[in-house]
């Protein structure tokens, strides 16, 4: 339990870093760290396949997408950075305070432990069975969404090329 707790605390710190960090690149690295820590937690919750998926796709692919997007944008000048950091401090210093308040409220809020869970029917224990037999429609949805996403990205980048000409 202590290991889980350590990873959970590290996850929140990484999330805070990604939200409050000054540079976008550091924010992206913070998001990747959050994702990697969540992968470890998912693995510890007996879901290795989802953990591997999270680690490879969210930590790897999404970080690559963000870094390429940031590299294609113009960096701020020194004056703009100074102005932005002043604005950021004003807007973001509430976040740790809000988190502490929520934490205290959750600790004080005594949720009853004896709630009854709804009975669930028996289910195949193999992920492959679930994916290919029980949730067949999800696979179809995933394929459609992937195609739609790929098409959307292609159209957006095409538009950029056209504008450059």
């Amino acid at each position: 339990m202590n290991i889980n707790l350590t990873f959970l605390i590290l996850t929140i710190i990484a999330a805070l870093w990604s939200v409050m960090g000054r540079s976008l690149l550091k924010a992206t690295i913070g998001l990747a760290a959050t994702s990697a820590l969540i992968s470890i937690l998912i693995f510890r919750l007996d879901s290795p396949l989802a953990a591997v998926f999270e680690l490879s796709v969210c930590t790897g692919l999404i970080t690559a997408v963000f870094v390429s997007t940031i590299s294609l944008t113009k960096p701020l000048t020194h004056k703009e950075i100074l102005q932005a950091s002043k604005d950021r401090f004003k807007r973001y210093w509430y976040l740790p305070v809000i988190l502490v308040v929520i934490g205290i409220a959750l600790v004080l809020l005594k949720v009853r432990q004896d709630f009854i869970m709804a009975p669930v029917p028996a289910l195949q224990q193999d992920v492959r069975d679930v994916l290919w037999n029980f949730r067949r429609l999800d696979i179809l949805g995933q394929v459609i969404i992937l195609l739609a996403g790929a098409l959307g990205v292609v159209i957006l980048f095409e538009e950029n090329k056209r504008n450059e000409r």
Partner: peptide, 21 residues
């Protein structure tokens, strides 16, 4: 856990598409 993993895989695929778009 198997059902949860199946759902999470779907969520991750959607997450990637959202991020890229």
């Amino acid at each position: 856990t198997s059902l949860a993993q199946g759902l999470v895989m779907t969520i991750i695929v959607i997450e990637v598409v959202i991020a890229a778009t």
